[in-house]
Design a protein around this nucleic acid. Sequence first.
DNA 1: TGTACATCAGTGAACGCGCGTTCACTGATGTAC
DNA 2: TGTACATCAGTGAACGCGCGTTCACTGATGTAC
Lengths: 211, 211
Amino acid sequence: VTQGKRGRYHHGDLANALQVAATELARKGGPEAVVLREAARAVGVSATAAYRHFDGHGELMHAVKDEALRTLAAHMSEELAASPEQSDPIAEAVRRLRTLGRGYVRFALAEPGLFRTAFCRGGDKVDDGAAGFQQAPAFHMLSRALDELVELEVLPAQRRPHAEVFAWSVAHGLSMLLLDGPLRHLPAEAQEAVVERSLDGILAGLIPTEP
Amino acid sequence: VTQGKRGRYHHGDLANALQVAATELARKGGPEAVVLREAARAVGVSATAAYRHFDGHGELMHAVKDEALRTLAAHMSEELAASPEQSDPIAEAVRRLRTLGRGYVRFALAEPGLFRTAFCRGGDKVDDGAAGFQQAPAFHMLSRALDELVELEVLPAQRRPHAEVFAWSVAHGLSMLLLDGPLRHLPAEAQEAVVERSLDGILAGLIPTEP
DNA sequence: TGTACATCAGTGAACGCGCGTTCACTGATGTAC
DNA sequence: TGTACATCAGTGAACGCGCGTTCACTGATGTAC
């Protein structure tokens, strides 16, 4: 695709450009800010042009949600890569689970617009079935960390079923409460304390410990 | 206040009537459905009349959020009263914690419009400080149940701080994931399983158990 | 008990807004011969 | 290599919508004397 030519009639990559612009709107203003006309304006194209590439506002929204979800997963991967690996395999598996959870909440706090958009209502494809979420990259990372804990025999096998949902619920709920909920005015240090305590709760909820 | 006289010029209880109507809109359609003009229409009054009693849409919204929160707390209380009391004090405290959590999630699933409205953005008073949420009735019930567990020495005192936030996060996150999130298409029985497993997680996360 | 008048609680018309979407169109591109 | 023409990817004007809010107003209520 040629590029750089200004003012050319055929954009060449409009679908992509619109999605990028719309995602930027979401980043700055959350799901309500994802406005088809404004994305077109940002790209320098008439609103109508968007209809060549998206079925309408709903489809554009869905594309943005997808990208937000991918960005969340990428952020979690990065945090995983950034924190030092442990030599002890158990400590390493635990570290992964913790880091994944912390990455989730941190992303929510760092990119509230994208996070809200990723989990807002509407803009769903009809065909995503009951278990489609299991293909989500973030979910997959979480599953692998939990499987590892089972293999290392620190997470008892009978606690394995639905463990993802439990861990996910903690991270997600905490994110929402800190972002838009009753915890939204907590000072930064209290926020951190609350996050770490909740991560403790995930681990304690999964890994048996003697009193 | 006299009532029953139809078509009288002075309503007598307009503020209340508008709040009830607006809450009903929220119940049926979530926060976006809370429309000042529609609430006025439902009461049979001009839109302008609402401005005698509310500063505008934001204040009406705030009133609805407050009521939704109170309804959630009431629902949790009811579930508590409905489930049989245990004679063993420890079992009883555990049952309370579990029932509270289950009541929270069940309310979310039974009244999605109110639940979403209770936790939507916007419509906040400026004066609710950093710790205002601790006065919320639902939070208070949760705190009491946790205090009881400490007194009975099943919840170690060093785990007490922020325990509310952890428990709340599980219930809230699970509710959101089931309602609008990736778990939204889970069949009913899988939903129940996931709820119970997550409640297990709350308890295991707080109460030490030997392997 | 009656009357004047301030105050309260409504009315209805109007405004501006920006959205998503449709319509008939036109300029650019690429392919067949 | 040139030309005719189908197709593709844009344009710009227009529509209807319903919202929150403001404005000047009027009917009802209650109080002072």
